[in-house]
Amino acid sequence: MSAKPANPYYTGPVSDHFDGKRFFNPEGVEPGGVRDLIKWRTNGQRARWPKRVNHATGPASPKDRIGGEDLRVTMVGHATLLIQVAGLNILTDPVWSKRVSPFSFAGPKRVIEPGIAFDDLPPIDIVLVTHNHYDHLDLATLARLEAEHAPHIITPLGNDTIIHRALPDAKISAVDWGDRLDYWDDVTIDAEPCHHWSARGLRDRRMALWAAFVITTPAGKIYHIGDTGFHDGVNYRAAAEKHGSFRLAGLPIGAYEPRWFMKGQHQNPAEAVAGFGLCKASHAVGHHFGTFQLTDEAIEAPVADLAEALSAARIDPGRFRPLRPGEAFDVPE
């Protein structure tokens, strides 16, 4: 009987971010271990979130397509954004499930309904899955999207194996940092580094890659990060050096407390504002907050902390908007 592979998701050559078994952040910080996890979970500092939050304006009903110089982003919830640009409809880290967990009966539960009802989605062309944590890679939602829209799924190395096992007929492109896809007229998608990690269970830590994406379109460039630690701004500077500047950046602003445990993997709003400047983006949308309670901060803390950071940096708050579910942002040219 042949031995099981050391990595069940990916086999490939050693690189500056893959040691032959696990991926890693060059000169980065590994996530905390079991002792740190227990210390955090028993610190008694977890804020109480409401069990239910109502929509301010109700779910959105997006247009089928947006072209020309227009660029619209609609918040679904957490890290799920509908990006409409250049006639394409792109979903990031789609999650319509009620929980982000390996279990249907336990784990972080949605406190606000999706900002777009699943049946109201326009035709979905592309799905970007940034990494395999359950609040970003939701197989139940991907199965619904495959059945209804058959989109082209783009995801970092190893995550394609996870998705293919559940959806053998799905069209999936697996990408490494630095890879570029150009299947679409006048649109390219690059996979770029971010500082994070991956796991679906207890024994597969860092066995699938994580990534940010740059979408280059005739209407401008979009820099999207699902999750990241600030990492001294290294990856923000590299993105600006390689791609120039961005019309829009989609940046995570939530799941950051306590800092001693989260700092390496989740930036806080002040760091997101610093990254916004470093990557030379004209506008940004904040996501990864207010939908599932993953960490200790209060539900409104990311929005308040973002406002404070923007004020301290003397940046017009209209340039960096924390979108609520159902809220759409027509990005200025």
Rank of each mutant, 00 (worst) to 15 (best):
P151G: 05
A255R: 05
F276Y: 05
V303H: 01
Y9W: 15
L167V: 06
G20L: 09
R247K: 14
R314Q: 11
G28L: 08
G220W: 09
A56H: 12
D232K: 13
P114H: 10
D135I: 08
P122F: 11
P102M: 09
H152N: 13
Q45D: 10
E146N: 15
E30H: 07
P317K: 09
T155Y: 01
H196L: 00
L209D: 06
P252L: 06
R205L: 13
V34E: 01
L294V: 08
T80R: 00
W210G: 11
G229L: 05
G277E: 10
L310E: 02
V100W: 06
L137M: 15
D185I: 04
W49I: 10
I83N: 01
E69S: 15
A170R: 09
R324K: 15
Y134L: 15
G67Y: 10
I215P: 02
P108M: 06
T216H: 08
I172Y: 00
H149T: 10
A239S: 07
L81H: 07
T57D: 04
E300N: 14
R35P: 00
S198N: 01
G28M: 04
R144I: 02
K263T: 01
T92W: 14
D330K: 15
F23C: 08
C279S: 06
R22N: 13
R324D: 14
T92S: 15
A3W: 11
D204V: 08
W260M: 00
H136W: 00
H224K: 05
P8G: 09
S101K: 09
K63H: 05
S311L: 11
V29E: 06
Q293P: 02
P26C: 08
M1V: 14
I154S: 02
E113Y: 12
T42Q: 14
G33S: 06
G12R: 10
H231V: 03
K4C: 03
I154V: 15
R65Y: 10
R203D: 13
A170V: 08
P269L: 02
L157W: 07
S101E: 02
H288M: 03
C279I: 05
W40K: 15
K221L: 09
W197F: 14
D36Q: 08
L81I: 07
V303A: 13
Y183G: 00
